[in-house]
Amino acid sequence: MMRFRATISVLGLVLAALCAFGRAEAAEPIAVIGPLADAKRTVTLADLALIYRRKRLLWPDGAKIVPINLPASNPLRRDFSQAVFSEPIEASEGYWNDMYFHGVTPPFVAGSDEAVIRFVEQSREGIGYIPLCSVDHRIAVLLVIDSNGRAVAPAAAPPCTR
């Protein structure tokens, strides 16, 4: 059993390394999404940092902001963290420990792109992010983060090339 686990771990490391090399060449553009009913909302990278640190709590119309994350193992989550916070996900652990002491917990996590879309579609307060190529008619794109981590207006976003 131990040998099996070790083998799986080594294989996993090799695949993860391949994955990292592959992704370095083609990081996917990220679409920051909100509900269609509030398509006129705009956000910047600085806004996203405050929202995902639970420091900005309300939309301008007074509705409570509910940010949604992808799982920590999702490469898009790591790209998002790097673009918005300029740091890997693990670096925020201390911050969330401190915030927990004040009764503030990290954003909820949805298990997949589709789960993020469904939550945002059905919640007036929600904001999430998905691969740009996963955007469809159910949600509005508030901001695009290109493959270099820069913010781009939705209208000027590069086309999906998947």
Binding site: G12, L13, L15, A16, C19, P71, A72, V109
Partner: peptide
């Protein structure tokens, strides 16, 4: 890659994903 990453996480750091999610 996703499966590999997930395997690593589950086999070697069972609490890691839970910490962040």
């Amino acid at each position: 890659c996703s499966v590999a990453l997930l395997s690593l996480v589950i086999l070697n750091h069972p609490a890691f994903a839970a910490d962040l999610d």
